[in-house]
Amino acid sequence: TEVDLHLGDITIKLKDVSEEIVKRAKELFKNGWSAEFVKKWIEEAVK
C-alpha cells in the first residue's frame, strides 16, 4: 500500500509502511520534529 504523509508543506510518499509507523511519524512531526527528521526516522523504522 502507498500512503502520502503530509508534513507541513512537505509530502512524503510511503510504500509498505504500517499504520503504526504513519501514526508515530505524525506524532513526531506534531511534537516539533522537522519533516526531514521524520523522513529519516521512517526510513530507519522500515529497515
Rank of each mutant, 00 (worst) to 15 (best):
residue 1 T to H: 13
residue 1 T to G: 13
residue 2 E to A: 09
residue 2 E to Q: 09
residue 2 E to P: 07
residue 2 E to W: 15
residue 3 V to D: 08
residue 4 D to L: 15
residue 5 L to N: 03
residue 5 L to I: 09
residue 7 L to S: 02
residue 7 L to G: 01
residue 7 L to W: 06
residue 8 G to P: 02
residue 8 G to C: 04
residue 9 D to Y: 06
residue 9 D to E: 11
residue 9 D to K: 08
residue 10 I to D: 05
residue 10 I to Q: 07
residue 11 T to D: 04
residue 11 T to A: 06
residue 12 I to D: 03
residue 13 K to N: 11
residue 13 K to F: 10
residue 14 L to P: 01
residue 14 L to Q: 01
residue 15 K to L: 11
residue 15 K to F: 15
residue 16 D to E: 08
residue 16 D to A: 07
residue 17 V to F: 04
residue 17 V to Q: 02
residue 17 V to G: 02
residue 17 V to N: 01
residue 18 S to E: 06
residue 18 S to P: 14
residue 18 S to K: 08
residue 19 E to L: 11
residue 20 E to F: 13
residue 20 E to C: 12
residue 20 E to W: 15
residue 20 E to N: 09
residue 20 E to Q: 09
residue 21 I to M: 08
residue 21 I to F: 06
residue 21 I to P: 00
residue 22 V to N: 01
residue 22 V to Q: 06
residue 22 V to T: 05
residue 23 K to V: 12
residue 24 R to C: 11
residue 24 R to A: 12
residue 24 R to G: 08
residue 24 R to E: 08
residue 25 A to D: 00
residue 25 A to L: 04
residue 25 A to K: 00
residue 25 A to P: 00
residue 25 A to C: 03
residue 25 A to T: 01
residue 25 A to V: 03
residue 26 K to N: 08
residue 26 K to I: 15
residue 27 E to Q: 14
residue 27 E to V: 09
residue 29 F to L: 06
residue 29 F to P: 00
residue 31 N to D: 09
residue 31 N to C: 15
residue 32 G to C: 05
residue 32 G to H: 03
residue 32 G to D: 01
residue 33 W to A: 13
residue 33 W to F: 12
residue 33 W to V: 06
residue 33 W to R: 12
residue 33 W to N: 08
residue 34 S to L: 05
residue 34 S to E: 04
residue 34 S to Y: 03
residue 35 A to K: 04
residue 36 E to W: 07
residue 36 E to F: 06
residue 36 E to K: 05
residue 36 E to A: 13
residue 36 E to I: 08
residue 37 F to S: 12
residue 37 F to D: 11
residue 38 V to Q: 00
residue 38 V to A: 01
residue 38 V to D: 00
residue 39 K to Y: 12
residue 39 K to H: 07
residue 39 K to E: 06
residue 40 K to W: 15
residue 40 K to Q: 13
residue 41 W to E: 00
residue 41 W to Y: 07
residue 41 W to D: 00
residue 42 I to R: 00
residue 42 I to W: 01
residue 42 I to N: 00
residue 43 E to A: 12
residue 43 E to P: 01
residue 45 A to H: 10
residue 46 V to H: 06
residue 47 K to W: 04
residue 47 K to T: 11
residue 47 K to C: 10
